[in-house]
Amino acid sequence: MKYASVIGDSIIRFYADYVGIKDRNELTTHLKRVQALLNENNQTYRCIDEFKFAYSRMCDRFFYPGLIEIGKTSSPLLIDLGCCAGVDLRKLMLDGYPVKSLVGVDLSARYIECGYELCRDKDKLPIRFLAGDIFDESFLSLHGQNNNNLNIYRHKASVVHAGSLIHLFHSTQRISQFLQRVCCMLLKGGLFVGAHVASNRTTSVYRPSRGHTKQYIGIDTFRSLLESHDFSNIEIQTSPRLSLEEEEEIDDISIFWVSFSAVYNPPSLKPLSPTVHTTIED
């Protein structure tokens, strides 16, 4: 995908109004420079290659209007897992979501720093970002054994978002472990939303462009995993995903984007209380 095909008028307006870059040539230079900085992280991702880090994709998902409504409630804490440069969170802020109730989490501190560079707002942005591995017990404990990092938000989030993240896990077992950790953060009645690449059935496909075998989760398998972790009211929408030119079609496998939302309804947690106000303290 070429640069010009993804950087449209709305994105140009964002950089003109929020970042202060009004010249299109300057914007092109800026985005390519930040792309190079992101690629210094020794990990290659298609979304970075295609400049998808530069704009919000969350705002085009079917669940986005509902998030804005949650932002108007008394318990609006939203945690964005795998936030990368954090443009989705900035879009939420600009659309009226209470900024002190937004938390970005990424494995890479460099990606978070690149987000500040991308948006030129390190000295003024009040969104809290945390760098760490959610599979690390010291960062997020399944048993609540410490009170730092993500543990301070245990069962306090009304929304957990995972964008372009789930398809990075290499097995259904790892996805199940990830869902366990999502559950650690959600209130009863909280919403788990996101988007990832999936297929019509769970399978492994060799990707010549990357030189490795890729695991794709099937949509029915993903739904079953959500149900097994006490999620209900599951809504899943699909949209086409264009394959890389060097990737061949394999038998009856269809690969597409999945957008989803699901409500966390465990039997043992107290329900979301309208009188509880959850924000991030400075």
Rank of each mutant, 00 (worst) to 15 (best):
T202P: 06
R24D: 13
N147F: 11
Q180N: 13
I250N: 05
T238W: 00
P267C: 02
A262R: 03
N146P: 02
T202Y: 10
G189W: 08
I112L: 14
K188M: 08
N41C: 14
S74D: 10
L272W: 02
D252N: 15
A162N: 05
G144M: 00
L31T: 12
G104P: 10
L27A: 08
I12A: 13
V263F: 00
F256N: 01
Y64Q: 06
F192P: 03
R128E: 12
T73A: 00
I253A: 05
E26Y: 05
G20T: 11
V103Q: 07
M93N: 09
Y264C: 01
Y116G: 03
A162T: 13
I234K: 10
C183A: 15
Y97G: 05
I217E: 00
W257C: 01
K214S: 05
I70C: 03
L142N: 11
N39F: 14
C47Q: 13
S74L: 00
T172D: 11
L81Y: 04
G86Y: 05
F192L: 05
L77F: 04
K52M: 15
S232T: 15
L226S: 09
I134A: 02
R210H: 12
E235I: 13
K32P: 04
L89S: 01
R128N: 08
T238N: 11
C47K: 08
K124H: 07
G20C: 06
L77W: 07
I166M: 04
F192H: 06
I217R: 00
F192I: 05
K22R: 14
R241Q: 13
E281D: 12
L67C: 11
N149G: 06
A195V: 08
M1L: 10
K72Y: 03
P267K: 02
G104N: 10
F222P: 02
D80E: 12
H212S: 10
S176G: 11
D252Q: 12
I280C: 07
G66C: 00
R241N: 11
F135T: 05
S138R: 10
T278F: 00
N149H: 13
T203I: 14
R24F: 09
I112A: 07
G86P: 08
S232I: 12
V182I: 14
N146D: 11
D123F: 02
L186R: 05
I175V: 15
D23P: 04
R207T: 01
I70W: 03
E246V: 01
G8K: 15
V159G: 04
G218P: 03
D49Y: 07
H212A: 04
D9S: 15
L187A: 03
T29I: 13
F135S: 06
P240G: 06
G144Q: 02
S176C: 04
F260T: 06
V19M: 09
T28E: 15
S259M: 05
S239V: 01
E235K: 14
K91F: 12
F53Y: 14
L168K: 07
T28K: 13
P271F: 07
L150H: 04
F178M: 11
S261W: 00
E246D: 13
R46C: 03
R110H: 14
F169V: 04
L142M: 12
K156Y: 06
L179Y: 02
S239A: 13
L130V: 12
S101W: 02
G20L: 07
R207I: 06
C119N: 15
L242R: 13
F62K: 05
I152G: 02
